[in-house]
């Protein structure tokens, strides 16, 4: 099974966590990214994720493979949503297991940062006032929006 998956439906964090089980692991760190109701001072109602799926999958897989190698992980997995999400939904789930906590914390942080930097997924925020806009990695509005 792929370490990275792009899914159109809600993420089951409990089921995903089972993918990390390993007898040699003494630490498990999980990051969940949720849709919040505000960004840059504006009230957010919902958001849409658009992805270039084949490349998102291969880039995500490459990040997780590199993390396993770099941080000597027992297991690593990540799931990212596509489609339409509302406030409170889980947008991304990242989990790792390792022999010790230092590697697990560092790897989990590194993976989510790399996903946000490299994986071709774009967020379109819809605001309470009816406007919407594509965002850049630092969560500021894209000037390409119309």
């Amino acid at each position: 099974m792929s370490r990275f998956r792009l899914v159109p439906d809600s993420i089951d964090g409990v089921a995903e966590k089972r993918r990390l089980e390993a007898a040699g692991a003494g630490a498990c760190v999980i990051f969940e990214g949720w849709v919040r109701n505000h960004n840059q001072g504006r009230a957010v109602q919902r958001l849409d994720y658009q992805a270039y799926a084949p490349l998102a999958s291969s880039e995500g897989e490459a990040i997780l493979d590199a993390a396993v190698d770099r941080f000597k992980l027992r297991a690593a997995a990540a799931v990212h949503r596509s489609g339409s999400l509302v406030v409170g939904d889980m947008a991304v789930w990242v989990g790792v297991s390792a022999d010790h906590r230092d590697a697990a914390f560092a790897a989990c942080r590194w993976i989510i940062d790399e996903i946000k930097l490299r994986v071709p997924i774009w967020k379109n925020e819809h605001y309470i006032d009816g406007e919407s806009g594509w965002l850049h990695p630092d969560n500021t509005p894209a000037d390409g929006g119309r």
Binding site: G33, Y49, A51, Y52, L55, A56, H80, A91, V92, I112, I115, K116, L117, R118, V119, P120, I121, W122, K123, W134, L135, H136, P137, N139, A142, G144
Partner: peptide
């Protein structure tokens, strides 16, 4: 060919 705008996943 795909021209990729700056990404904003996560």
């Amino acid at each position: 060919i795909v021209f990729l705008p700056p990404v904003s996943g996560g």
